[in-house]
Measured scan of single mutants.
Amino acid sequence: AGSTTLRAVGKLQVRLATKTEPKKLEKYLQKLSALPMTADILAETGIRKTVKRLRKHQHVGDFARDLAARWKKLVLVD
Rank of each mutant, 00 (worst) to 15 (best):
D66G: 07
T5V: 10
T38S: 08
F63N: 00
I47W: 02
A68F: 05
E44F: 05
L12C: 04
K52F: 05
F63E: 04
G10R: 14
S33M: 07
Q58Y: 12
K72N: 03
K72Q: 06
E21C: 13
T45W: 04
T45C: 01
A39I: 12
K56N: 14
H59F: 11
S3P: 15
K49Y: 12
V77A: 12
P36Y: 11
L6T: 07
K11C: 12
A64T: 03
S33Y: 09
A17V: 10
R53I: 05
Q13H: 06
R65E: 08
A43V: 11
A64I: 02
L32D: 03
K23D: 15
A1Q: 13
T45L: 02
L25A: 00
S33T: 07
M37Y: 08
V60T: 02
L74T: 05
A39Q: 06
L42E: 03
L16K: 01
R53N: 14
A8V: 13
R48L: 15
E44A: 08
V51M: 00
V9C: 05
G10C: 15
R15W: 14
W71D: 00
R15I: 14
Q30R: 06
R15K: 15
L74A: 05
K73E: 14
T18C: 05
V75R: 06
L29K: 05
D40H: 10
A64M: 04
Y28P: 01
G2N: 13
D40L: 15
E26D: 06
A8L: 14
P36E: 10
T5S: 05
Q30E: 09
L74C: 05
K72C: 07
H59G: 09
K56I: 11
G10P: 15
L29I: 12
V14A: 12
H57F: 09
G10D: 13
A64S: 01
P22F: 10
L54T: 02
K72G: 08
A39T: 07
T50H: 04
L54I: 02
G61Q: 00
V51P: 02
I41M: 06
A43F: 07
Q30G: 04
K73Y: 05
K31D: 13
A17N: 14
L42I: 12
V75T: 10
L35A: 01
A64C: 10
E44K: 07
P22Q: 01
L29F: 03
R65S: 09
R15F: 15
A64R: 00
V9N: 00
M37G: 02
Q30Y: 07
T20Y: 04
D66Y: 04
H59N: 08
R65N: 11
T45R: 00
L6E: 13
A1P: 12
P22L: 04
K23W: 13
K73I: 05
T20F: 08
G10L: 15
H57K: 04
R7F: 08
L74Y: 04
T38L: 01
T18A: 11
L6P: 04
K52S: 14
R48T: 12
G46N: 10
T45Q: 03
A8S: 07
E44R: 05
V75M: 10
W71T: 01
Y28R: 02
K72H: 01
A69M: 10
G46A: 06
H57N: 11
A39P: 12
H57L: 13
L29W: 02
T4M: 09
G2F: 10
K11Y: 10
K23L: 11
K52T: 08
A34G: 08
A39D: 03
A17S: 13
Y28K: 00
G10S: 13
E21M: 04
K19H: 14
L67R: 02
E26A: 08
L32P: 02
E21T: 09
F63M: 12
K72I: 00
T18R: 07
L6I: 10
T38P: 02
T50M: 11
F63C: 05
D62Y: 02
A39C: 09
S33Q: 08
E21S: 10
I41P: 01
K24G: 04
I41V: 07
L16M: 10
R48G: 12
T38R: 03
D40K: 13
Q58N: 11
L16Q: 04
L32H: 05
T5E: 11
D40A: 14
V75L: 13
A1D: 12
M37D: 08
G46E: 05
H57C: 09
A34V: 08
L16E: 06
L25K: 00
L32Y: 03
W71R: 02
V9Q: 03
K24C: 14
K19M: 15
L16W: 03
R70T: 07
R55I: 15
A17L: 09
V51S: 00
E44D: 07
V14P: 09
T45I: 01
T4V: 09
L6V: 09
R53S: 14
L42K: 01
V60Q: 01
R48V: 14
T4P: 11
L6K: 06
R55F: 15
V75H: 08
K72A: 07
K56Y: 14
R48I: 15
T5A: 03
T20R: 06
D66M: 08
K52I: 14
D66L: 05
L29T: 00
K31F: 06
G2P: 11
A43C: 09
D62W: 04
E44H: 04
K31G: 06
Q13V: 10
R65A: 12
E44C: 05
L32M: 03
R7W: 11
T50I: 11
I41S: 01
R65Q: 09
V51H: 00
D78W: 07
E21Y: 04
R70G: 04
G46R: 05
E26W: 06
I41C: 06
E21I: 04
K72L: 03
S33N: 10
A39V: 11
M37W: 01
A17W: 08
R55C: 15
H59L: 11
E21V: 04
V75Q: 10
Q30C: 08
R7H: 13
W71L: 08
Q58R: 11
L74S: 05
L54S: 01
A64F: 08
M37Q: 01
D78I: 05
K19D: 15
D62G: 06
T18P: 12
T4G: 11
A17E: 15
P22Y: 10
K19S: 15
A17M: 13
T5F: 11
R15A: 15
K11G: 07
R65K: 09
P36T: 09
K73C: 09
Q13L: 09
A8Y: 12
D66E: 11
G46H: 09
K11P: 01
R7Q: 14
L25E: 03
V60D: 00
D78E: 10
T38F: 02
I41L: 06
K72R: 07
T45E: 02
R70Y: 03
L54F: 11
A1Y: 15
V77H: 10
K19T: 15
D66F: 08
P22N: 07
V75W: 11
L16R: 00
E26V: 04
K27A: 13
R7S: 13
G46L: 05
V9Y: 03
V77N: 11
K31Y: 13
Q13D: 02
K23G: 14
F63G: 03
E44V: 07
L54Y: 06
L12A: 04
K31N: 10
R48H: 14
E44M: 09
K73L: 05
D62P: 04
T38V: 02
E21A: 09
W71H: 00
R15N: 14
L6F: 03
L12E: 04
Q30D: 06
V77E: 13
W71E: 00
Q58P: 14
K19V: 15
T4K: 07
E26P: 01
H57Q: 03
L29H: 00
S33L: 03
G61T: 03
W71G: 01
A69I: 06
I47D: 01
Y28N: 08
H59M: 11
L35P: 06
F63P: 02
R55S: 15
A8F: 13
V9P: 02
K56A: 12
A64K: 00
V60E: 01
T20E: 11
D66R: 06
A64W: 03
Q13M: 10
R65C: 09
R48W: 14
I41K: 04
V9W: 03
A17Y: 04
L76W: 09
R53T: 12
D78M: 05
Q13S: 05
D40I: 15
K49H: 14
V60P: 02
